[in-house]
Amino acid sequence: MLEDFFKVVTTRFNSALSDGENKDNPEKKKNSVNIPKGILFKCPRCSSVCESEKLESNRWVCPSCGYHSRITAKQRLSITVDKDSFTEYDCDMQSLNPIDFPGYEKKISDLKEKTGLNEAVITGECTIHGERCIIGIMDSHFMMASMGSVVGEKITRAFEAAAEKHLPLILFTASGGARMQEGTVSLMQMAKTSGAAARLSQAGIPYITVLTDPTTGGVTASFAMLGDIIIAEPKVLVGFAGRRVIEGTIKQRLPDDFQSAEFMLENGFADMIVDRYAMRRTLAHLIRLHRGVQIPSKEVSKDVTG
C-alpha cells in the first residue's frame, strides 16, 4: 500500500518538468522495455496494461483508472474537430537558433523526423459540432512542447487570427515551460503571447484554454492562465514551478494530487474538469453560449467525433 503510494508519487515526480526542458520519463522508458511498443500500453499511473487498440478506442484514456494520457496533436485533432474541417496555419514555420545554443539545430531536425512535426504546436481553423473556431494544440512529444520563438509566434498569430476573423479561440495547452535553448528570447514569448491574449480579450472574443498533461512553467505563467474559460482534463499535471524544485525547498515529498487539475479547481484556478468524452460537446456548447444561439438538445450526441 505504502509502496504503491510512492510509486504513484514517483510517476508524477518524473513527469514534473521544472526547467522548461525535455526530459524523457525514465519510468516510461523502463516500462517500455518489456512491453512490445505499439501493441500494448502500460499506464504510468496505475500500471495496468491494455492493448493499444483498446486504449485508442477509449480516446487514449486508461480504461482502468481514467488517466488522460498524453496524446499527439494529430490524435487530439482526430477526437476534437469535425472531420475534414481543419485548415492548418503556418505549418512551415521552423526554429532558428537565436542564442547559438550548441546542438540545437540537430535536436530540432531529429525531432522533426521522429515526430513528423515542424514544431511543438499546430494551429489552424476548424469546426467543432459545426461551430467555427481557431484552434491551437501543443504536442508534448516535440521537446516537451517547450515555448520558443515558433510556439510563441504561432500562438500569437492564432490570437490575432481570432481577433481578425471574430472567431473564438481554443488552445489545448501542454508544455514543460519556456525553451531554454532559445534563452531570454523564449522568456519574451510569454509577454508576446499574453499581450496577444489581452488584445483578443479587448476585442470581446472568447478564449478557452484546455489544460492537458503537463501544463507547466512559462506556459502556465502566460497564455494558459489567461483564458476566459479554463478547462482541465482529469488528473493532468498543471503548475508553475517544478515539483522537484519545491520538494528540494521543503525537503519532503508532495502528495500526488499537488499541481493536478483537481488542485487547480480546488484553489480557484480552473473553471471545470472535462473528460475527453464530453470535451467536443462542451466546447461547442460554450461557443454557442457566447453567440447566444439556442442549442437543440439533439445535437448533444455523445459519440460523434471527427
Binding site: 505563467a221 503548475g239 514551478a241 517544478g242 519545491i246 484553489n267
Partner: peptide, 15 residues
C-alpha cells in the same frame, strides 16, 4: 517556488 505559491496561483499572477 513553494506549495503556498502554487496554491495561490503564482502562474496566474505572473500571466
Amino acid at each position: 517556488c513553494g506549495v503556498e505559491a502554487e496554491k495561490r496561483g503564482v502562474g496566474e499572477a505572473i500571466a
